[in-house]
Simulated assay, not measured.
Amino acid sequence: MFTFDVFLHSPALTTSTVYVLGAVAGLLAAIVSNVPMHRLPEGSTPPFVAAGVLTGSDPEGVDPTLASGLHYAAGILAGVFYTAVEYGIEGLTPPPELYVGGTQLPLLTHLLALLVTFVFLVGFFSYVVLPRFDSLSGSYRQIRRDWLVTATTYVLGLGVFVPGFLRLLI
């Protein structure tokens, strides 16, 4: 569990509040990740590919509103995933000595949870979702590279928003 010893025992920051915080941070990080997504040659392809997998249609035939909605929903879910990983790591590690400035968020746990989230995002999309479309096989390399940049931006955003929200709640 998060080492919010004081906070977890207060009504202000319950476990469900921490998950909501992760979801909101994930949504904001998804918004930030739009910057590289829309500037890279294949940056906006991943939401269309994911929507294509969910609808069983070709990514080029996916409604842009659906792809955009899925992008934000995935950002929210990745924020919740980060929170679950953070809880899991903290439950397995000794009490921390370093915290993210002004919060009770263990620095090492935070960084490890961000790394696990990044590896999951990149690996799941690149090697489970994307290969479902052979029609894109000529672009796999560029799509993966652009997704790597976008996922990096997402995780960096998450890495800033989570402690930022915690500071607001203290």
Score class of each variant (00 low, 15 high):
residue 51 A to C: 05
residue 27 L to S: 03
residue 17 T to W: 08
residue 121 L to E: 02
residue 25 A to K: 02
residue 111 L to T: 06
residue 125 F to N: 03
residue 98 L to F: 05
residue 115 L to K: 07
residue 51 A to G: 13
residue 169 L to Q: 12
residue 109 T to R: 11
residue 8 L to K: 05
residue 6 V to C: 01
residue 138 G to S: 14
residue 160 V to D: 04
residue 161 F to M: 10
residue 43 G to Y: 06
residue 14 T to L: 14
residue 107 L to W: 09
residue 72 Y to W: 03
residue 137 S to K: 15
residue 67 A to W: 04
residue 4 F to H: 05
residue 112 L to W: 15
residue 43 G to P: 09
residue 69 G to C: 06
residue 136 L to E: 03
residue 71 H to E: 03
residue 93 T to M: 13
residue 123 G to Q: 09
residue 131 P to K: 07
residue 33 S to G: 14
residue 20 V to N: 01
residue 62 V to H: 04
residue 86 E to A: 13
residue 142 Q to P: 04
residue 151 A to S: 14
residue 41 P to Q: 14
residue 120 F to E: 01
residue 119 V to Y: 03
residue 63 D to S: 13
residue 12 A to F: 01
residue 64 P to R: 09
residue 102 G to L: 01
residue 22 G to T: 06
residue 147 W to T: 12
residue 20 V to W: 07
residue 149 V to M: 11
residue 12 A to C: 02
residue 121 L to S: 08
residue 115 L to W: 12
residue 97 E to N: 14
residue 18 V to Y: 06
residue 151 A to R: 04
residue 115 L to A: 15
residue 62 V to Q: 09
residue 122 V to S: 05
residue 70 L to N: 01
residue 8 L to E: 12
residue 74 A to M: 10
residue 31 I to W: 13
residue 48 F to K: 11
residue 162 V to R: 00
residue 58 D to V: 11
residue 58 D to N: 15
residue 106 P to T: 07
residue 4 F to R: 03
residue 159 G to K: 02
residue 19 Y to H: 13
residue 77 L to M: 09
residue 169 L to N: 01
residue 5 D to V: 07
residue 105 L to D: 06
residue 127 Y to E: 11
residue 117 T to G: 00
residue 85 V to F: 06
residue 66 L to D: 02
residue 51 A to S: 15
residue 116 V to Q: 06
residue 9 H to V: 03
residue 42 E to H: 14
residue 160 V to A: 15
residue 94 P to E: 07
residue 79 G to F: 04
residue 13 L to P: 03
residue 146 D to C: 13
residue 91 G to S: 11
residue 13 L to V: 14
residue 59 P to Q: 08
residue 110 H to K: 04
residue 124 F to A: 08
residue 123 G to D: 10
residue 55 T to Y: 03
residue 160 V to L: 15
residue 25 A to E: 11
residue 29 A to Q: 03
